[in-house]
Write a protein that binds this DNA or RNA. Structure first.
Ligand SMILES: [Mn+2]
Ligand SMILES: [Mn+2]
Ligand SMILES: [Zn+2]
Ligand SMILES: [Zn+2]
Lengths: 140, 140
DNA sequence: GTAAACTTTGCAACTGAGTTGCATAGGGTC
DNA sequence: GACCCTATGCAACTCAGTTGCAAAGTTTAC
């Protein structure tokens, strides 16, 4: 077993997910990305693995707070690995950026959601904040 | 023709949409709402009208900046009438609130999107900001 | 006024992401 | 090895959204 493999195995163990072949492959792929990816993205790379297995893997990862999902308005949910120490609580939430040109979705980890004033008695539990525009590479 | 009818007719005229029966009915219904509604919501009320006609009406309204759409994460796009003077530009964008209890989606018109600092060279064109939680009526 | 041209509408069929039931395969326990 | 529980693959299904097309309605041209 190579180093990479032990690495993802450790992560899965730590988050309470039994490390299976599918799960290790999916996590490995997710860790490689600089952008958030869709089920289809994963499917097309890990083509030997079944869509529903990958789907269930993603659900399980999300439940165990290993990844978070982003609804970027494209009609395909995107997934990205949570940052170190993330517990998917309010303080871990951040903006996401969808580039309308290259169609990549990014986590803006350095831009946490500042307190948003809500109408009286409204309570925030979660957010899905997506900014659409041009990323640095496409904004020429 | 009653007063309500002339009212929606005027609005449609002003926004450059030919006032037809379907369009006037849809706009009338939208104006009645305190929350954002889905195609299905409209369909179930204006049941004599066809889904695709309502769908195309909504697309047309959106293109003519009569309404804006909200992806609140429920899997069904919601629509709400734009405020007076709205041009769907950056300064018209506002937060939306989805109540996880009563499942209503609200426009937080009084909460415009403040300038969000983006990574260098990123350009914001649009946003879809959804806060999920409990509305005042459900937050007991 | 009538015919031609264009627009809107209703219907039905389709798309595609997501989801589920179920049988089989895999892994651990005794 | 027999037993048990979980993960996986496959196929079928769901459901919001979308499209092609013909009929109905409206506008324009003569
Ligand atoms: Mn993220
Ligand atoms: Mn709104
Ligand atoms: Zn880009
Ligand atoms: Zn509520």
């Amino acid at each position: 077993m190579n180093e990479q493999a032990t690495h993802v195995e450790d992560i899965l163990q730590k988050k309470g997910v039994k490390p299976t072949a599918v799960r290790m492959n999916v996590l490995n792929f997710l860790l490689d990305q600089e952008k958030a990816v869709s089920l289809k993205d994963i499917e097309s790379v890990l083509s030997r693995m079944d869509r529903s297995s990958i789907f269930r893997t993603l659900k399980s990862f999300e439940e165990h707070k290993l990844i978070h999902s982003i609804d970027d308005g494209t009609g395909m949910t995107k997934y990205a690995v949570c940052a170190e120490g993330c517990n998917c609580e309010l303080e871990d939430l951040h903006y996401h950026f969808y580039c309308v040109s290259c169609e990549k979705t990014f986590c803006l980890m350095d831009h946490p959601i500042s307190t948003i004033e809500l109408p009286k008695n409204f309570k925030m539990i979660h957010v899905n904040m997506v900014i659409k525009g041009l990323c640095d590479k496409c904004n020429k």
